[in-house]
Amino acid sequence: MTQPRRRPGPKRALSESDVLDAALTLMDSGGPDAASIRRIAGELGVSPNAVYTYFPDKAAIEQALVERLLGELNRAAPAGGDWRADLEALAVDLRRRLTAHPGAVPLLLGGAMNGPQALHLGERLLDVLTRAGLPAERAARASYLVMVYVLGAIALEVADVPQAGALAPEADRIAARRAAMTRVPPEAYPRTAAAAEVMSTWVGTEQYLWGLRRVLDGLTPGPD
């Protein structure tokens, strides 16, 4: 007896957000190189042409991911108050979001941050630094300095873990660095060995804030 043919089910609806979710999942597990158009399509169970419907190339996907991550940061922004507290909160939140997706960190370092959300973040920085009493030119220079410190610190923190994927909890990463530092021969590197305990905490929040606060200390109004 001939079985009746089944009607095909509805095609899966796809959106820009689905493509970005898949790209971020691949980056989280394998780093930025893992999120090729073909692999993104495979993750979604569609053909590469379906991905091209939303993005012309991988670079456009990466730019959109940067915008998404920065948009989430901007939407979570606290109301204006003490400028230092606001800037520290912003820097800590950015670190938290980027270390949750270490594969996306190179995207912020390797491309122009000129989308609407990146510009909005820059405007927020200028606003905070203006509230600190800096004139316009100095605020502009200071905003660049702050971003260099913040993104550089995050990039080094992520690079400290050689394999791709999510970072281990901060306490575990510090413990691993501490164990590694015990293997430094003190007779060859006496100063490094003496500073081993502090150096083991370089990937921690305490060091991140220590450096940020030193940067901010140098930004108070005064002669250049």
Results as ranks from 00 to 15, higher is better:
Q3S: 12
P8C: 05
G9P: 13
P10H: 14
S15W: 00
D18A: 09
D18P: 00
T25V: 13
L26Y: 09
S29W: 00
G30S: 01
P32D: 05
S36E: 05
I37F: 00
I37C: 00
R38K: 10
E43V: 03
G45V: 01
V46Q: 01
S47D: 14
S47G: 13
A50M: 04
A50Q: 10
A50T: 04
Y52G: 03
Y54T: 00
P56G: 03
K58F: 01
A59C: 05
A64M: 09
V66F: 01
E67I: 09
E67W: 09
G71T: 08
G71A: 07
E72Q: 15
P78Y: 01
G80K: 05
L87Y: 02
L87R: 02
E88H: 08
V92T: 14
D93H: 10
L94C: 05
R97T: 03
R97W: 02
L98S: 10
A100D: 14
H101P: 05
H101G: 05
G103L: 06
L108Q: 08
L108P: 11
N114I: 01
Q117L: 02
L119D: 14
H120M: 12
L121A: 04
L125G: 07
R131E: 01
G133K: 09
L134E: 06
L134Q: 07
L134W: 04
P135H: 11
A140S: 12
R141F: 07
R141Q: 11
A142T: 04
S143M: 00
Y144W: 02
Y144C: 04
V148R: 11
V150A: 04
I154E: 04
A155R: 10
L156E: 13
D160T: 11
P162H: 08
L167S: 07
A168H: 12
A168C: 05
R177M: 15
A180E: 13
M181T: 02
T182H: 04
T182E: 13
A188T: 12
A188P: 02
A194N: 04
A194V: 03
M199R: 14
W210H: 15
L219G: 08
L219C: 05
P221Q: 10
